[in-house]
Simulated scan of single mutants.
Amino acid sequence: MKVAIIAESFLPLMNGVTHSLLKILHHLAERGDEVLVIAPSAKQHEATEVAGARVLRLPAVPLTGYRNLRVAVGGVNRLRVLLNEFQPDVVHLASPFILGWRAAQAAQQLGLPIVAVYQTDVPGYAAKYGVPFLENKAWERVENIHLAATRTLAPSSHAVTELRSHGIPRVQLWPRGVDTVRFHPAKRSQLFRQQVAPGGERIIGYVGRLALEKQLEDLAAISELPGTKLVIVGEGPLGAELRNRFPDAYFTGFLDGEELAVAVASFDLFVHPGELETFCQTIQEAMASGVPVVATGRGGPLDLVESSKTGWLYPPGELAQFRSYVLDLIGDDAKREAFATAAFRTVQGRTWQAVCARLIEHYHDAIAEHAMATTSMKGSR
């Protein structure tokens, strides 16, 4: 089939949206599908083809306070022209908000079926970044996009419930896969452990953007536990501030590929304090690496972590409980090992192959539903 993917963010910026898109593109390429990706310009490393898909870039400007994230400019007409030229069977909106909203309108005007993949809690980000008056406006935008969609895919049961509570119909659960070959306990490295914790400390690790929405200030609750070393993997706008705040932590900077897999497998415990995760791919990667998890009990982690089996979930804001759960696993080698084994077993079978195959089914269903709705509308005239 012919698939047009509208990406709110794309390479060279690596995040959860880009990561999942790359998996999808490789799967579509293996099937022999024809794919067009429309994404914001990046000013560097702008490949015109990725995994067999043609990539068209729209002019974009950097987002204030987060210069690596770029917002595409241009109107609905431009997107309508591009989509009309490509004539896709289905339009895939990846984490739509600004560019995705324009694409939704363009696709509607052309009578194309739309699959909108909800992946970022933009309304929650607005509140977290100190502009709560924009939260309702952001929800209006999210609602308008997904009301226009033939089908909406959400990555977790929490996200499905939240979207439905806002009156958004046709929402289906579509979780994410994990590469259980790349992320594996066999990648554990004594060399890495000696480098970051030369005193033999237990390693407590975090992986992700160093940004306000990740609530990394909450790591203060566990940053100075005796016999432990906090290791923070990632970069972002709060990088310098966090390095000052946690001078005893080890910051690796951004890691990818084998370096990331080695780092994660070398942790003793993985922590994630953010409350705005619609899924949280890094939790799955830690579990696949045989590392138990302590995370906040809201959003995506609710589907991923089984308390008292693969890790612990603590109530949002309850930092004393966060600290207590970390101490529980750091201080008990046998329990931590049991949780690690259970975490590893839990994610086996969650392959990207299976997840992407289900996406193709969603595409076909959306095409059929759109055709039926179009026929019904014509018949009622």
Rank of each mutant, 00 (worst) to 15 (best):
E277N: 02
H272I: 10
T310S: 06
T278C: 14
T278D: 15
A288L: 12
H272P: 02
G299D: 13
T310M: 08
A286P: 01
E306T: 15
C280S: 14
V291W: 03
V291C: 05
E277F: 03
E306H: 10
F270I: 12
A286L: 05
I283N: 03
V294F: 10
R298E: 14
E285R: 05
D303R: 04
E285T: 08
A286F: 05
P273R: 01
E306M: 10
E277W: 00
D303Q: 00
E277S: 01
D303T: 03
A286E: 02
V293Y: 10
Q281L: 15
V291S: 00
K309W: 06
H272W: 01
L304Q: 15
S289T: 05
S289K: 00
I283R: 10
G299P: 12
P273N: 07
E306C: 08
V294H: 08
H272D: 06
F279K: 04
G274Y: 04
L276P: 10
L302G: 03
P292K: 03
Q284F: 07
A288Q: 12
V271E: 01
E285V: 08
K309G: 06
L302C: 04
S308D: 13
T296E: 11
V294P: 02
S308W: 00
G297S: 06
T278V: 15
V305M: 08
E285A: 10
V271Q: 00
Q281P: 11
P273V: 02
G299W: 13
F279P: 06
T282H: 05
G299A: 15
R298S: 13
S307N: 05
F279V: 09
L276K: 15
V271N: 03
T310H: 02
F270V: 12
A288I: 10
T282A: 08
I283E: 08
Q281C: 10
